[in-house]
Design a binder for these strands. Structure first.
Lengths: 194, 194, 194, 194
DNA sequence: CATGAATGAGACTTCATTCAT
DNA sequence: CATGAATGAAGTCTCATTCAT
C-alpha cells in the first residue's frame, strides 16, 4: 500500500486521453487498442478513464464528435468574406489538405470509426452543423454558375473523396504532399466541378 | 489390399468463410467480429476455421489479398482493346462504381483492413500487380494528351477517392447510385483529369 | 477426393504407435503430446489410432503395462540358475542399468505415467507378476543371510531408486554410464544391503 | 491536493497460487490441471493468475524454482557445525526423508516437472547453489575417509534415489515411513557409501 | 478524484474424438 | 481397415469494468 497525489478533476486529462487514443489508433487501428493501452499512453490509471468516460464506447464516440467538429472549424481558417468564390474555394481546399496531413491521426481515426461498432449509423447520418459553411460555399458556387449544377452533397463527397485518398496515400508512402502536387490536385478538383 | 475413398479438404469452405466474414464486417466492422461469429455465419465449427487458417490474423490477411486481387480483375471486364481511350476509361469507371456498389462488403472490408492491426503496412505498400492494366490505361491517356500530364498515381488516387467516397455515401443513405448520378460523377472525374 | 491403400489389420502398427509415443514423451513429457502428434510420428492417420485403442487413456495405459512387463523380462536375461546369489544379483543389477540406459524413453515414460491422470492408482498397486523372479532372488538372499533382514519391498525400492536416479542423471548430462561408474554404483548397492 | 491509499499487489497471493498448484498436481498430476482449476483452488479469479504470472508455463517454472530452492534449505535445519560427520549426515538424511514425506506435494511436483514441457532442460542442468552445503558435507566425508572415494555427484544421486523412491512408495501405499523403516533405510544408505 | 489490483465474461485456440469417404 | 477433415467441448488468455484503498 502506498499513497498517491490527488488533484481536482482536471479537464486537461481529457485532452491527454484524446491525444493518446488518436496516436494509438493511427498506429494500430481501432480494433487494436485497449483501455489499458490508452491509459498507459496517457500516463494515467485505467480507473481514471472511467471517471471521464462512462465506458469505451462513450470515449470513442465523444472523440469522434470532437474530431468532426474541430476539424470542420479549421477548414475555414483565413477565409475572408470579401474574397471571390474561387479564392475562397481554393483556400478551403488547401486548408483541408493541410489539416488532414498535419492531423493524420484524426483522419485515420474518423475513417476507422465510420464502420466501427462504436459509432452507430444513426449518429453518422446527423448532418454536421459544422460543415454548413462549406455547403453554403458550394451553393454560392452553383448559384454563381462557377460550379456544375449538381447536388451539393455530391460535390462535398467529391471533395472529401479526393482529399482523403490522397492524404492516405501520401502518409503511407511516407511522403509529404508537395505544394506542386497539392496544386495539381486542386486543379483536378476545380476542373471537375466547373 | 484394396482402396478406399478419403474426404479431402473442401476448398469451397474457404469461399464460405470469406463470404461470412465479409458479411459480418459490413454489418459490425472489423473490430466487432469474432471467430465464433464467423464460424456460425459460415455454418461450420469453430475448429474448422483453424484447419483452413492458422489464426484470425491470417484469415483476415488472406481475405484482404483475395479481395484486392479479385476486385481489380473485375474492373476491366468488357473492355475491348479496339475501343477509344475515352470509351475504355468510361467503361472502367462504371465497372468500378458498379463493382463497389454490388460488392459493398468487399469495399467496406478493404477500407477497414487498411488501418487494422491485421494487415501490416509493408503488405500494403506492395504495388498491386492486378492494377497494372489501369496504370497502362492512364499512361495511354497521358501520352495521347487526353489527360493532364501528372503522375499516374495521382490520377489513380483521384479516381478511387471519388468512387469510394461516393459509394460509401450512397450505401449509408440506403440509395442506389442512379445512372444519372453516376454519369454526373463520371463527368466530374473526366473534366478533372483532362 | 483421392484413394488410399488399405491393408488388413496390422499388428506392427501397434509397435509403431508405441515407439512414436515413447519417443515423444521422452522429448516433451506426457503432458506435452497429442494424439495428432503420435499419429504423425507413427506415420499413420489420427483415426487409425482409434482402431487400435479406444482412446488416449487406453493407449497410455496399454503402453504402460507393455513397458512394465517387457522391461521386467529383460532384467533376467542371461541369469543362470546355477550361479551364486552374488553373481545373479550383479547380473540383474547390470541388466537393469543397461536396459534403462538403452531404453531411456521407456524409463521416462514409466516415471511420467506414475502420477499421470491416465494411470490410476489401483492399477499401479497391482503387484507386478513380472517382478516375481526379482522378489524371489531377494528372498533367496535374505534366507542365505547375504542380505539384511528387511522387507523385500524395501530392497526393491532401494534398488530401483538408485538405478532410476542415476540413469536420469546420466541421461540429462548427456553422458553414458561408464562401466567404472556402474561398478561403483553396484558396490554401493551391494554394501548397502548386506 | 491530498493523498489517497492505493491497493498494491498482494504478494501473499503468490503463496496461495503455489499452494493450490501443488495440491492439485499431487492429486491429478501436472497433465491434469488447468489454470481454471488453480484459480478456483486458490480462491481467486482466473485473470488474477495472469497478473502474477505471464502464462501457465511461467507459473510452473517459477514454482519449480521456488520448490527446488526452498526444499534444499530445509535439509540442513538443525545441523550443527560441531557435530561429527556421521551425526550431520544422519540428520540431513532424516531431514530429507521427513521433508519429502510432509511435503509430498512438493516432491511429486518436482518429479513431474522434470520431464514436462514447462521446464526446459537447460534450466534443469543449472547446478543448484542451494545444494552446495550437501556437496560440502559429502566432500568432507570423502576427505575424512568416512565415505568411499567416488564422485560426490554419485553419492548425491544415490542419496536422492533412495529417498525419493521410498517416499513415493510410502505415500502410495498410504503408510507413514515408520522410524524403524527410516532407520533401516539410513543403514542401507550409510553402509552403501562407506 | 486517482489508483491499479482484481474480476470474470468472453475471445482465441487446441485437441480428443467422430465419421464420411 | 485407413484416412484426415470436421466437430465442439474445454482450455488458455485478454480486457472492459469495478472497487478497495
Amino acid at each position: 500500500m502506498y499513497f498517491c497525489a490527488v488533484r481536482t478533476k482536471d479537464e486537461s486529462k481529457i485532452a491527454a486521453i484524446y491525444k493518446a487514443t488518436l496516436s494509438l489508433v493511427k498506429e494500430r487501428g481501432l480494433a487494436g487498442i485497449t483501455m489499458s493501452d490508452i491509459s498507459r499512453e496517457a500516463s494515467i490509471a485505467t480507473g481514471t478513464l472511467y471517471i471521464y468516460f462512462k465506458n469505451k464506447d462513450e470515449l470513442i464516440k465523444a472523440l469522434f464528435c470532437e474530431c468532426r467538429e474541430k476539424s470542420a472549424k479549421e477548414y475555414f481558417a483565413g477565409v475572408e468574406a470579401t474574397e471571390s468564390f474561387e479564392e475562397k474555394m481554393r483556400t478551403v481546399f488547401i486548408n483541408i489538405v493541410r489539416y488532414k496531413m498535419t492531423h493524420f491521426d484524426v483522419s485515420a481515426f474518423l475513417e476507422q470509426s465510420y464502420h466501427s461498432p462504436f459509432v452507430c449509423i444513426t449518429d453518422l447520418k446527423k448532418k454536421q452543423k459544422a460543415l454548413n459553411p462549406l455547403f453554403a460555399l458550394i451553393e454560392e458556387g452553383i448559384e454563381k454558375k462557377k460550379i456544375k449544377n449538381v447536388a451539393p452533397d455530391l460535390v462535398l463527397s467529391y471533395l472529401f473523396g479526393i482529399v482523403n485518398e490522397m492524404v492516405k496515400k501520401a502518409y503511407f508512402s511516407n511522403k509529404k504532399l508537395s505544394s506542386e502536387t497539392t496544386g495539381q490536385l486542386y486543379a483536378m478538383f476545380r476542373d471537375g466541378i466547373r
